[in-house]
């Protein structure tokens, strides 16, 4: 198990990644008309073919994987903090950390597989 401060620093780092990647997501998905207006967007971001096309690009594949990892870590650390507020015994705290770590890693591996598979399509 890592030191408590290390978990917290990773939490901050994940938050920074989310801030950057979510900004990109919001720009592409929700400011699509603006992107069309300035000539760098196609305007059909929600169409299945557009989703597929983005998934085939290395940039999006990598950003999906990083966003998945960052969001998972950030969220699961928050869940861990909430659970720790229940004044748990040390043993149970360690068990919760282990379960969240293993569960999170499992979801991350599966999500990464999906992102890579989408790239291959």
């Amino acid at each position: 198990m890592l030191k408590e401060s290390t978990y917290w620093y990773l939490f901050l780092l994940a938050g920074l990644f989310i801030l950057v990647l979510l900004s990109i997501h919001m720009t592409i998905m929700h400011l699509d008309q603006l992107l069309v207006a300035i000539g760098i967007g196609s305007g059909d971001v929600l169409k299945f073919q557009s989703v597929l096309a983005r998934g085939r690009q290395s940039f999006f594949m990598v950003s999906y994987i990083i966003l998945l990892g960052a969001a998972l870590y950030h969220g699961l650390y928050g869940l861990r903090t909430i659970l720790f507020e229940l004044n748990l015994k040390k043993g149970l705290q360690t068990a919760i950390t282990a379960v969240l770590l293993i569960g999170g890693l499992g979801i991350f591996v599966y999500g990464t597989y999906v992102a890579i598979a989408a790239k291959m399509m």
Binding site: K3, E4, S5, Y7, W8, T81, F84, Q93
Partner: peptide
Amino acid sequence: RFDLIDTADGTTK
């Protein structure tokens, strides 16, 4: 002291 307080019951709480 950082080592003493670097626990789940320290600053991060």
